[in-house]
């Protein structure tokens, strides 16, 4: 990693998106160094030493990078990167796709207790099912989210660059452990910023 390339990413302590960014970098470094945790930590530490502004949220980071012109690289969700490119013109920014990254799967679920209380179980379930219909998957793909259904994935394959994706369960043994090891007080992330 070059020390003169400044990176924009939000603060993993306050931003969910930033946690994905951090874990993606960690997983990438693990893969490059045959699973050496110390090397991964070194890589992520170096990465964060090059961050000049830690915004509290992912949108704030995008603004810092795009509007204020700070930093050389913005770590962003794939869909956000495509959207930014569409908004601002393809000649302004270039998307760099890493060879390996994390598969970010935001969960969606019906909270049955709340739904029951509001008597909205039926609509809530219908919405959940709709997300996975062909129509729902197409809408997702059109907005640059990688579709889950094979059909839509095939149809929009050209749009998404090939990339090896690992899941949080594979590398970090789930969110609970990742949060505890990396982001809780006294965790790995805090050590990076220890004076």
């Amino acid at each position: 990693m070059k020390s003169d390339v400044s990176v924009i990413t939000p603060n993993p302590k306050t931003s969910g998106g930033a946690r994905w960014n951090y874990l993606a970098a960690w997983g990438y470094a693990l893969e490059q160094n045959n699973g050496d945790e110390a090397k991964a930590k070194e890589f992520v530490t170096k990465l964060f030493k090059n961050v000049p502004v830690l915004d509290s949220g992912a949108r704030g980071s995008t603004t810092t990078f795009v509007e204020r012109g700070i930093g050389d690289v913005l770590i962003a969700w794939e869909n956000e990167a495509f959207l930014a490119l569409n908004e601002l013109g393809k000649d302004e920014f270039e998307i760099v796709v890493p060879s390996i990254s994390i598969l970010a799967e935001p969960p969606v679920t019906v909270v049955d207790e709340n739904a029951k209380k509001h008597e909205t179980e039926e609509v809530a379930k219908a919405y959940l099912d709709y997300l996975y219909t062909d129509e729902g998957q197409e809408i997702a793909a059109k907005n640059y989210y990688r579709p889950r259904s094979e059909e839509a994935a095939k149809k929009y394959a050209k749009q998404f660059p090939e990339i090896r994706l690992f899941t949080i369960d594979e590398v970090f043994d789930g969110w609970k452990n990742a949060q505890k090891t990396h982001f809780d007080d006294g965790g790995v992330f805090d050590e990076i910023y220890k004076p």
Binding site: T14, S56, Y193
Partner: peptide
């Protein structure tokens, strides 16, 4: 502020950070 630890992190931000955890 830029929210950099040790440099530009204000107290209310640290409080929010704790709440997020």
């Amino acid at each position: 502020s830029g929210n950099m630890p040790m440099k530009t992190e204000i107290v209310p931000l640290l409080i929010i950070t704790k709440l997020e955890q």
